[in-house]
Computed example of a mutant assay.
Amino acid sequence: METLTREALNGLGLLAILAIVALGLGIVFGLMGVINLAHGEFVMIGAYVAWVVGDSGLSHWLALPAAAAVVGALGAAVEVTLIRRIYRQPELAILATFGLSIVLRQAVELLFTKDFRSVANPVPGATEAFGVLYPTYRYLLIVIALVVVAATLAAFTRSRLGLTVRAIVADRDLAESAGIRTRVANVAAFAIGAAAAGVAGALVAPLGAVEPNLGLAYLPGAFLVVIVGGFGRRWGVLTGAAILAALQTTVIHWFDTVAAQIASLALAVLVLQFRRTSVQGADA
């Protein structure tokens, strides 16, 4: 029973991390149609913001809004200077954001070197729940991540900005003819997506080493979450994260992490094939 409880908590923690990392990617990819291969670097920069805040002697909890502000501002700048020039050109978007990811990693290496940095655990120790001792910070991470994801998704489904973005996605030309300021909405959506990645980076920073390649570990999982959860569907990020977390936790229990990654990729392929078949059947 204790083993099952611990694995359930590990699965819930994985769900929270996958969901918050995939949140920004889901906004940019699912709603705006841009494949942002630099999303992992936004997570990495958020982790470095957390390190800078901690190294300055400030509370780690200040790193969350600081990371959101810094990475959100970076995202807005990227949208204005790069992304808005390549809308409706997915091949260019892939190449441009891949190049951006390299530039951001190199810039971080110049500023902070390749040395591994560590962020102190703001809430050390463990808390007993359901008869199992589990790290207290991981409990807080689960709660904070799920609250951030739920609040952001609710805002995009209920707020004026969310309605505006979805109108642009449905028909950009019609939205512009109706007087919607598409450029403002795009930069706001991209900035929010980047800010979410920054918060994810600040949250996961105490869990491991902070270094320039940190974001590369999170990008594949984030894409899989968006694929499994659905492109731009309501609450798709949480759905995809829950499915993948359950799958990976189960496979790791019986096999290993490599098998879990293979199983996740196989699931994504099956989901894409099923959607393709469904679309073809509807068109027939």
Results as ranks from 00 to 15, higher is better:
R172L: 05
D173Y: 09
D173P: 01
D173L: 15
L174M: 13
A175L: 08
A178R: 02
A178Y: 00
A178L: 15
G179D: 02
R181P: 15
T182E: 06
V184R: 12
A185P: 03
A185I: 01
N186L: 12
V187F: 13
A188C: 11
A189I: 07
F190A: 02
A191Y: 09
A191N: 03
A191K: 03
A194W: 09
A194E: 02
A195P: 07
A196K: 03
A197C: 13
G198K: 07
V199D: 05
V199K: 05
V199E: 06
A200T: 00
G201P: 08
G201L: 05
A202R: 08
A205Q: 15
A205M: 08
P206V: 00
P206C: 01
L207R: 12
A209H: 14
P212R: 00
P212Q: 00
L214Y: 08
G215L: 06
G215E: 02
G215R: 04
L216T: 00
L216Y: 12
A217W: 12
L219Y: 05
P220E: 04
A222Q: 03
A222N: 05
F223E: 06
L224E: 09
V225Y: 11
V225E: 06
V225G: 07
V226W: 11
V226H: 08
V226D: 05
I227M: 10
V228Q: 08
V228L: 12
V228M: 11
G229Q: 04
G230R: 03
F231Q: 10
F231E: 05
R233L: 14
R233S: 09
R233I: 02
R234N: 01
R234G: 02
W235V: 03
T239N: 11
G240I: 00
G240F: 13
A241M: 09
A241Q: 09
I243A: 14
L244C: 04
A246Y: 07
A246H: 11
L247E: 08
Q248E: 14
Q248T: 02
T249A: 11
T249C: 06
T250G: 12
W254E: 14
W254G: 11
F255E: 13
T257E: 14
T257R: 14
V258E: 14
V258H: 13
A259R: 07
A259S: 13
A260L: 11
A260Q: 12
I262R: 06
I262G: 06
A263D: 09
A263F: 02
A263K: 10
L265V: 05
L265R: 01
A266G: 13
A266M: 12
L267Y: 12
A268E: 10
A268H: 07
